[in-house]
Design a protein around this nucleic acid. Structure first.
Lengths: 117, 117
DNA sequence: ATAATATGTGAATATATCTTCATATGTTCA
DNA sequence: TGAACATATGAAGATATATTCACATATTAT
């Protein structure tokens, strides 16, 4: 049954499939997680995250660091904010951004380790 | 200089920006990493990765686990293969896929921890 | 040999994403 | 008060992505 080695609609590796279905993440969690990874799927946003993993920076510092326009940076930050990957504080007309969660820096670190292996 | 608190083309937080520019990843690495995260930015592919983090599975098992068509799964697997996130072995007409790197499972794990906090 | 099966892939379409431009809001400076 | 500045955002165009459909290839079964 579990190693039928045939695979149409009626005869998959049933045990393997059932085992894979157990204890898996919820659809909602997986969709949310895909959105989070989507935020990291862009070089400019990765630069933003990389920079913020070291220090708090304002929008136009991030514009200088990434080479993106202020508008593009603001749009990126809005999405990062919506997924709570970054947080910010307002000081006068400046907005200082920081990472909102250590996991984000960890994802960046693990990812870099991966591609450098 | 480092805390000018003004930010146009001439007067950014220079020290902060320079410090953020030092020791950062290369453009190539960051582009590659963005591509890797892009592979994880889709619920169906996350299900594939989640399932493969537990056991080797064939294409149509993955189709059953994800609810995607066989064709869609094959397309996803091709991209995952191109970025070396998965590897496979051929056995007759079956293809058995597995994760190619422990980092991938770690990214999934850290990501899930993040969204569940 | 013929049919059925498992997988792979090009083309096409639908949808999502990124960047720019124009402009709005709120803050500081003169 | 009026000008300059930092940031935010809606709309639009360009590009990328996901899925399906049709079909190709290779393997196994009869």
């Amino acid at each position: 049954m579990s190693d039928s080695a045939l695979c149409d609609l009626h005869l998959v590796h049933e045990d393997a499939v059932h085992s894979a279905m157990k204890g898996r993440a919820s659809d909602d969690d997986l969709t949310h997680l895909a959105d989070v990874f989507g935020m990291l799927a862009n070089p400019g946003r990765l630069r933003i995250v990389e920079a913020l993993s070291r220090q708090e920076l304002c929008v136009c510092d991030l514009s200088a660091v990434t080479g993106l326009s202020q508008s593009a940076v603001s749009h990126h930050l809005r999405h990062l904010r919506q997924l709570r990957l970054v947080a910010f504080r307002k000081e006068g007309r400046m907005a200082y951004y920081r990472l909102d969660d250590a996991h984000v820096a960890q994802l960046l670190h693990t990812g870099l380790e991966h591609i450098r292996e």
